[in-house]
């Protein structure tokens, strides 16, 4: 399929599908849709690091949790009217934290980078659990207040959808910007990028800061969804789940990750309710994807589209 056509199709599908949800009267469906857009933002911003730049962070949950706790703690302490500016504060806090952690961890190569990001996230998770007086520890934070006009499932969904859409638009611009192209270059051949006169580390750092910033916004949005957050938002299985959903959807495509999230969340909703062996089920799906569909749902669709468009321009298979 033509690349531009694919992008247009996916953007339209996104806007129609999730925008159309506002006409759906079913509370449960709206809640599911809200989960998908929020986690979708997390996965797509994570994929700027992973699929584009080739950096496998196992600790992005740190920023998801950070966003949720900054929003949740401020709103809880100062009241629902402060929810919005707390949410505005989230990107700033996240970028500051990412600048420090990125500067420390991006000097490391491959698996050492992965392990260090994991360690940072686990450390913050541990601190959140143990520092009861500040974070309410293992109890998490419940009944986080929101401003009046965001109350109710539908209102909050519209709000989340708009915020996520703006974020996705910005990330999409980044994806196809000169900077985004350089990131792809860094994934494939960092030495050559260096010999283009560019500092690879600084580009990675900016990618890390931007990615973490949007992940934190997703976390902040989550804090308002059910008004309930828990330290487990920081834990490594959260990061692992996002990696899984990203690959399931397709890490070489901008929208791939959110498709993976949608499939995963819907499956969890349908299957998770009817079995206590949900993990087993997820594991089996993961194996099938890894073994048979490593390019994810988007990759498979592209192959199918290519099959039907065989007579077209043989050069067009981006």
């Amino acid at each position: 399929m033509n690349h531009r056509l694919e992008t247009t199709a996916l953007w339209s599908a996104y806007v129609l599908l999730f925008g159309g949800m506002i006409f759906v009267k079913n509370e449960h469906a709206i809640h599911i849709a809200a989960q998908i857009v929020i986690l979708g933002l997390f996965a797509i911003s994570f994929n700027i690091l992973f699929g584009n730049t080739g950096l496998l962070s196992f600790g992005q949950a740190l920023f998801y949790g950070l966003g949720a706790y900054v929003t949740g703690m401020i709103a809880k302490k100062f009241g629902g009217d402060h929810f919005l500016w707390a949410l505005l504060l989230v990107p700033l806090v996240a970028m500051a934290v990412a600048l420090v952690l990125g500067a420390l961890s991006l000097r490391l190569s491959d698996v050492y980078f992965t392990m260090l990001t994991l360690a940072f996230a686990q450390l913050v998770w541990g601190i959140t659990i143990k520092w009861y007086d500040f974070t309410s520890g293992d109890d998490g934070i419940q009944a986080i207040p929101k401003p009046e006009f965001l109350a109710g499932g539908l209102h909050y969904y519209v709000f989340a959808f708009l915020v996520v859409t703006v974020c996705l638009y910005l990330l999409w611009r980044l994806h196809r910007s000169p900077f985004g192209t350089i990131l792809k270059g860094i994934r494939q051949n960092p030495t050559r990028v260096n010999f283009l006169g560019l500092n690879v580390f600084r580009h990675k750092l900016l990618a890390y800061v931007i990615s973490s910033c949007f992940t934190a916004i997703a976390g902040g949005l989550y804090a308002g969804l059910d008004g309930s957050i828990h330290p487990d938002m920081f834990v490594w299985t959260m990061s692992g789940g996002i990696i899984l959903m990203t690959i399931l959807g397709g890490m070489r495509s901008f929208f791939g990750p959110i498709i993976g999230v949608a499939v995963f969340v819907l499956l969890e909703d349908v299957v998770g309710r009817s079995t206590q062996y949900w993990s087993f089920f997820i594991g089996a799906i993961m194996i099938v994807v890894v073994m048979l569909f490593p390019k994810g749902i988007v990759g498979v669709s592209r192959q199918f589209a290519g099959l039907f468009a065989k007579k077209g321009d043989p050069l067009e298979h981006s």
């Binding site: 692992g240 990696i243 899984l244 690959i247 993990s279 087993f280 997820i282 594991g283 089996a284 993961m286 194996i287 890894v290 073994m291």
Partner: peptide, 9 residues
């Protein structure tokens, strides 16, 4: 990812 799936299973 694969070995993560093993953990779950």
């Amino acid at each position: 990812l694969l070995t993560y799936a093993f953990i779950l299973i």
